[in-house]
């Protein structure tokens, strides 16, 4: 069991839940935890949420959760959970979509797909290895951008698809090849995270730019409710 120690809004429909675990977390950047809710009659509902906080040896992790329409678990987390609540979590899970902080990587995230990539960016900044990472984030509008205060930096590119801040140099539009930074190393691994549509578009752009298929790791968010 974990204890909710803080809940904060990232956008109008995304909240970050800071959880205290019984033991220090051993997660890697990119991994996820399972949140399991149990009703008095024994009914359970579980969903996976990516860890947004970097591995830092502490016993606290942050999960950022998008409130999905009709989402059984995300609605409960958004509408009911408050600091002090006990929540059952399991993890960390996943050994594929992980960045260990020691190899060049290009991160491409759409919408809530930025969450596991944020753990990677935070790890890079914490360990003074921002030179290894480039992060491209696509958001509908400034109001939909997660971690808006923290994201900007020399490693990051922000792409808006529907609305931009005033005097933003890039016109609105979907992610295109020109948004991808020059490769920082020929053997960089690309990490793509977002909806199936975003993931397909982004992997297509990466392939067009010459990234071999075996250097592309994808995490798709299904329309799971």
């Amino acid at each position: 069991m974990a204890t909710v120690v803080e809940v904060r809004a990232e956008t109008a429909n995304a909240k970050t839940f800071r959880l205290a675990l019984p033991h220090p977390s051993i997660h890697l950047a990119g991994q996820h935890y399972i949140v399991r809710l149990t009703a008095p009659d024994g009914y359970t509902a579980s969903r996976s949420y990516s860890v947004a906080s970097p591995p830092d040896g502490s016993a606290e992790i942050e999960l950022t959760v998008e409130h999905l329409p009709d989402g059984e678990v995300s609605s409960f987390l958004h509408e009911v959970v408050v600091p002090g609540d006990a929540i059952e979590v399991r993890g960390p899970i996943g050994g594929w979509f992980v960045w260990r902080g020691d190899a060049p990587a290009l991160l491409v995230g759409g919408g809530s797909g930025v969450v596991p990539l944020m753990a990677m960016l935070r790890l890079a900044r914490r360990s003074g290895r921002s030179d290894l990472l480039r992060l491209v984030v696509s958001a509908r509008s400034p109001a939909d951008l997660y971690y808006a205060a923290e994201l900007p930096g020399p490693e990051t590119t922000i792409v808006y698809t529907r609305a931009t801040p005033p005097s933003w140099p890039r016109p609105v539009g979907r992610l295109n090849r020109g948004d991808l930074p020059a490769p920082i190393a020929p053997d960089a691994t690309a990490y793509v995270c977002g909806t199936p549509g975003f993931a397909d578009a982004a992997t297509g752009l990466l392939a067009d730019a010459g990234t071999p298929a075996d250097r592309i790791r994808v995490e798709r968010f299904g329309p799971t409710r």
């Binding site: 009703a39 024994g42 009914y43 509902a45 409960f76 006990a86």
Partner: peptide, 29 residues
């Protein structure tokens, strides 16, 4: 059993017996 404060689940009593534990029905998606 530890249950989650305030969580009741949806579709009480109407759970499809074809669903294994911890699964939910995505319907037509």
């Amino acid at each position: 059993m530890r249950f989650t404060r305030g969580f009741r689940g949806r579709g009480q009593g109407a759970r499809d017996s074809r669903l294994p534990p911890g699964q939910y029905d995505v319907g037509s998606t």
